[in-house]
Amino acid sequence: MLRFVLTRLSLVIPTFIGITLLVFVLIRLIPGDPIETMAGEHGIDPARLAQLRVDYGFDKPLLVQYGLYLSRMAHGDLGRSIATHEPVISEFRTLFPATIELSVCAILFAICLGLPAGIIAAVRRNSIFDHGVMGISLTGYSMPIFWWALLLILLFSVQLGWTPVSGRIAVQYFIEPVTGFLLIDTLIDGDFGAFRSALSHLVLPVIVLGTVPLAVIARMTRSAMLEVLGEDYIRTARAKGLPRFRVIAIHALRNALIPVVTVIGLQVGVLFTGAILTETIFSWPGVGKWLIEGINRRDYPVLQGGTLLIGAIVMIVNLLVDVAYGMINPRIRYAR
């Protein structure tokens, strides 16, 4: 087991260095200059531009800049945003909890609905329920979520007025960030009104972001369950006269969960993609929106640092999923 973990780890480090290099090079290839972009209609005097480029270190050869970047990164310094002059890491720290809160809630939403739906669909195969779940989930899977978000806003926020339109919490609540997760911070504060406000702000973005994972989980659960239900040991258990519920809940589900867990792990990368769109539409103060702005402003340090941190997180989650999978299923351990 340890060897398996170590081999996986040894793959992670070169991948990470590869990401730093790829991201560094890609970002420098983007045409445009952060200083010029900021200058607006006024433009900027060439002499001052040259001076500023020196001040920001853009005048050095790319390789030197990359080396400097790596060595600073080793000390935990990801540089400062060119637009705001704040350290990238501290901006990330303020914004990341919002993204996490949204993503975790979206995944929970997807699991809570997708798992039971998939199980029931499998058990009642070819029933109306099964067809309904499969039809809906395929629709969800095909959904352009940016459009889905607009529709939900139009219906629930504008027409019915049930949910807030954007943001994380109503402005009248003054919550000092402790963890950065508003659902937790409001409870620490003991302010239930604020908690409800935070919750109601979460509803639509969570539905939007959770739609695709929900569809995927429901489909995966159904097919995994179908496969397991066809196995001999299930038939044996049934034949022995065990209650139907017990067979499904204990014997079948446990084995069917293995592929489902993998799929959930794989959804993490997908979630970030969805988060970029969801945050943009709902003005959710998270990392996705920050990165889009970073691209528009040619804010190299933000883009670089943000992409790296997200890449690192995706890698760690994938690693954990791999390890967990290896633990559940010994065959995988020796496959490589």
Binding site: W162, T163, Q172, F192, G193, S200
Partner: peptide, 21 residues
Amino acid sequence: MDRSILLAAVCASALVFASAA
């Protein structure tokens, strides 16, 4: 997400809003 929770949330925020003024 339960509809009643939602409604409750909206009502509650309306109440607090009135008092915060």
